[in-house]
Computed example of a mutant assay.
Amino acid sequence: MRIVFMGTPDFAVPSLKLLLEQHYNVVTVVTQPDRPKGRKKTLTPPPVKEAALSFGLPVLQPERMRSAEAVAAVAELKPDLIVTAAYGQILPKALLEIPRLGCINVHGSLLPKYRGGAPIQRSIMNGESSTGVTIMYMAEGLDTGDMISVVELPITDEDTSGTMFEKLSNAGAELLGKTLPAIIAGEAKAVPQQNEHATYAPNLTREDERIDWMKSARAIFNQVRGLSPMAGAFTFLNGEVFKVWQCAVPSDAAPKPAASVPGTVIAADHNGIHVQTGAGVLVLQEIQPAGKRTMNAAEWLKGARLEIGTQLGDGGAG
């Protein structure tokens, strides 16, 4: 049986490795083009391409999967099944109709919740206590296809997007291994999604990274975890970007309405920088001042002149 695998980031790599470890015939890997990365804008291949080349697999990198040329290139491979995991583009109907067993997707959420490109980050940012992986048949819409199998995982306060990406990518690969035999045998039982319960997880924007100090300490805590270690949340200190990579909500008191203007530094000690929010206090533990490396907030305070009463953000609005 001929399989074409489509994926781009680290999330997809365990699923590709699973296919190879279980001796499935992956004829080609399709991934996004190499992109400039870092301050030097070095052209960098996506993780799936690096993994595919390490296994000696041929790689296709079309700029637009919806182009006639890209669809024709996949059609020439005569796949029986297409497996996707975080590929990053919506596949056209012409491509979905190519394999006789269809196209399946390993999606990082409990569908129909969090359809879209940033389900893991937004589930954490929204304070969800659990998430999971859904394997589904692909349809023309955005993650709208019938569901084949699901696995659920808890989200703890210690989790970030980084830890959940790793947990879910491995859980997704394991689920894929358990689900494929039924698909190949034509025995998979797919269940339509309840569209009325659908929620969406669009790709993150710069505005999603900006801290709004009017929100509660808990909401900002979730935002910071959901953006770490990829983009990071940010505010402003003396007009310059001030990133927050790790923070904590003190457990010794229930959240209270603001006693000071939200965004005000009310204490600074060995625990970090204590900031008033719209409800409760948030302690900034790992920060990155403009032009500097990421560091422990207590370490930074030893050399920084941060006065109590300093205002972060722009008038408390982030």
Rank of each mutant, 00 (worst) to 15 (best):
P92R: 11
E209P: 00
R305P: 00
I184A: 11
N170E: 14
S149N: 15
G226Q: 00
Q89V: 08
V261H: 07
I183F: 06
E97A: 14
P62Q: 05
L60Y: 09
G116M: 12
G315R: 05
M147Y: 03
L153P: 00
K178F: 07
A73N: 10
I155K: 03
I183N: 02
Q288P: 06
K243N: 11
I155A: 06
V48N: 00
A68D: 15
V106Y: 01
V191K: 14
F11H: 03
A70E: 06
A201T: 12
K256P: 00
F221I: 02
P79Q: 09
V275D: 00
Y114K: 04
D157I: 12
T42D: 12
I308E: 13
A118T: 01
Q194E: 15
K78G: 04
K40W: 13
V249D: 02
A75C: 09
V283Q: 05
L77E: 13
T134N: 01
I184D: 08
A253C: 06
K40Y: 12
E158F: 09
L301R: 04
L111H: 05
F234L: 02
E196L: 14
V265E: 05
M164D: 08
Q22D: 14
L204M: 14
S109G: 01
K167A: 04
R293N: 12
A297K: 03
G272P: 08
G263Q: 06
M147E: 07
K78N: 12
S54R: 15
N238P: 00
L91H: 03
E207P: 00
L306E: 07
M1V: 07
T199E: 10
E69T: 12
E166V: 13
K167Q: 04
Q121H: 11
L16C: 03
I184G: 09
D159H: 09
V150R: 14
F242I: 09
S169W: 10
A94T: 08
G7T: 03
A86R: 11
T31W: 05
P119W: 14
A268S: 12
E240W: 06
I82R: 01
S67P: 08
G127Q: 06
K41P: 02
Q246Y: 06
G117L: 11
A188Q: 09
D34V: 02
K302M: 05
P14L: 10
L95S: 02
F5M: 05
A52R: 02
T294W: 07
Q285K: 14
A188N: 04
V224D: 04
D143E: 11
P255H: 06
F11S: 03
K189E: 15
L19N: 03
A231R: 15
L312D: 04
L110F: 06
A198R: 06
P62C: 10
N271A: 12
S130K: 15
D269Y: 07
L16I: 10
N296R: 14
N25Q: 11
